[in-house]
Design a binder for these strands. Structure first.
Lengths: 193, 193, 193, 193
DNA sequence: TATGAATGAGGGTTCATTCAT
DNA sequence: GATGAATGAACCCTCATTCAT
């Protein structure tokens, strides 16, 4: 029951924060959206920041799980990257509100929020490791993985941003379908030997 | 009196906001950093939000000026893009604090801040128009300029983010020198026919 | 907890506002007088204006209750007016601070405060209706009830003002006892010999 | 020239204060309405309060002049009162904005403003002296002049209030014409049939 | 005298957090 | 665990007043 309640609050917080932004979202409004009282929030989260952390942590965990699955696959590293991006976009499509938060609240509070930082730095790191493997395997031409992985993630997030703030659901889904293809194509050719 | 007060406040605000983030920057602290009283801020800005707007507006104006200069150049559109990115990175290098703000405070206040929105949407639009010309000129392969320009700007900003939050100045400058080369290379090959 | 908080704040606000005037009364000082924190005020009132509104609303409700009681009495309408004025002065006598506010803060805020307006317009209206009945019953000579009811209420309030700002309690009470007699006499038969 | 400028400011202040109320009128807006700069106001008035004082002082001086003229007339005291009220209403009719201020800003700032107090207490005192004379001359029945003069002034001001806040000029003038007649009649002979 | 930019104390309001029930 | 009234520090903004030009 208690696990469900934390989830309940997380879900409600996503709606509120995606709509109003983190700093403009009050704990009261999150509580109201969750159908609990403010006090209850503090039984599951140490403070308001931790709610946002938890949202990012949850998403990072999802992405990490995807990476873990991909790790054992016997396909070229570059293809793993493509598969990851597709999975990423699929999740965004399933929950665009989370997408809004991921691209908007990333820098909240001095980067002092560990969960947020872990996400923002963690994804590019994983991409970087794939790139490194890909370079070593001679699949792609040499590059600075730190810079290029950041660039890739930045490109991805920018496209997510466009899609996610598109209000018309039909158009948004079209973008989210088309984007990974365009993106992967753009990235792949860029990395082509 | 010799120094323009509005500029004085803008400069001070950049330091404060870059360090603490917009929402954690108080008008008092901005005033203190500028060596004026709070009241003076409100002689030049309608409210706190407008300070941030003005920062973005100023940067957008710089970028627009660069574009204007490039427009008349008789070089391939793709090369214009490279020149723009180089100019962008040069400006960031000259004032990394502004860079921090550009990548961090982009989504402040519901995207309701016109100056911020103008910047965030304006740059990709200009890139998109260069891409369009480039496609028409047969310089690059066809793509969705909307998506790809967003991707490019996202990639650029992500790299700016890394550089700009690198505390060691030497390392930061190295990154800012290396990044445009890597990036342009990444982008160009990606767009190669 | 036993005492209703909203009432507690209303009572404290009456003391503060009567003493310093509405515009010079700070929410902090009202909170202090009530023995609560500022925040608590805002749990019961939307803003400072609403405190004043509530004070007037409360008094209007008292007066309306008196009118309601008088309605069913089988006495001449003019006598009802006398009874009302006596009740009014009795209430003022019981709480002179409220009296001070009623005569001083009447026009606060552009007449935009509904509670205040309701009071200032409501009492004369009720008086006017009594006058109308009285005229129809042939008890008094015809007159413009709108003007005369305003005049009566104005006369009453002016006398309340004198009494209520008399610092010596004995003298004040003497005035408040004498005033309704003089007033009703004056109203009933004017200065005519 | 300097006398004219003080008048200029007084006139502008009347417009602003009548419209927005004293506490909501800024010195800036008064200066703007007068077509001078804030600084200039402080060359003619020690502070904002003094502007309001001056407005009341000016009106009191007008009323005092009327009384002075009436003093030497060889008519019954009660008739002098009637003449005074008529003159009062005539002035209000000529400048309703001043009327608004007279009835609204009377209690501003703790009654601490001498000019305001002088007006609010001065007029009833003059009325009281007329009543006293009238009683002594056996023209009217005995009464407490303090109370009755306050009542009369209160009645007058309440009617002024109604008239002055009537937006339609035609209707306002009709009220201002009708009111003194009704009022004087009411005062002279009350409601008695 | 006139100006109006600069001042900064002060005030209304918000909202994350606590804790007694 | 759940509640939600109470808290009060903190913040944005206003505006009467000053004073150098």
């Amino acid at each position: 029951m208690s696990v469900n309640k934390k989830e309940l609050i997380r879900t409600a917080a996503i709606e509120v924060i995606a709509t109003k932004g983190f700093y403009r979202s009050t704990t009261d409004s999150i509580a109201a959206a969750a159908g609990v009282s403010v006090g209850t929030i503090y039984n599951y989260f140490k403070n308001k920041d931790e709610i946002l952390e938890y949202i990012f942590q949850t998403e990072l965990a999802h992405r990490a799980a995807i990476f873990a699955e991909l790790k054992d696959l016997t396909v070229p590293s570059l293809e793993k990257l493509q598969l990851f991006l597709e999975a990423h976009f699929t999740e965004i499509k399933a929950n665009p509100l989370v997408g809004q938060i991921l691209v908007r609240e990333r820098q909240v509070g001095h980067d002092a929020l560990d969960g947020v930082r872990a996400f923002v730095e963690g994804i590019p790191q994983k991409i970087a490791s794939l790139l490194q493997l890909s370079i070593e395997a001679g699949e792609i031409k040499p590059c600075n993985p730190l810079i290029i992985s950041a660039a890739i993630f930045g490109a991805v997030e920018a496209v997510v941003r466009i899609a996610v703030f598109t209000v018309d659901p039909e158009e948004r889904n079209r973008l989210l379908d088309q984007a990974p293809v365009e993106l992967v194509n753009f990235i792949s050719s860029g990395l082509a030997k």
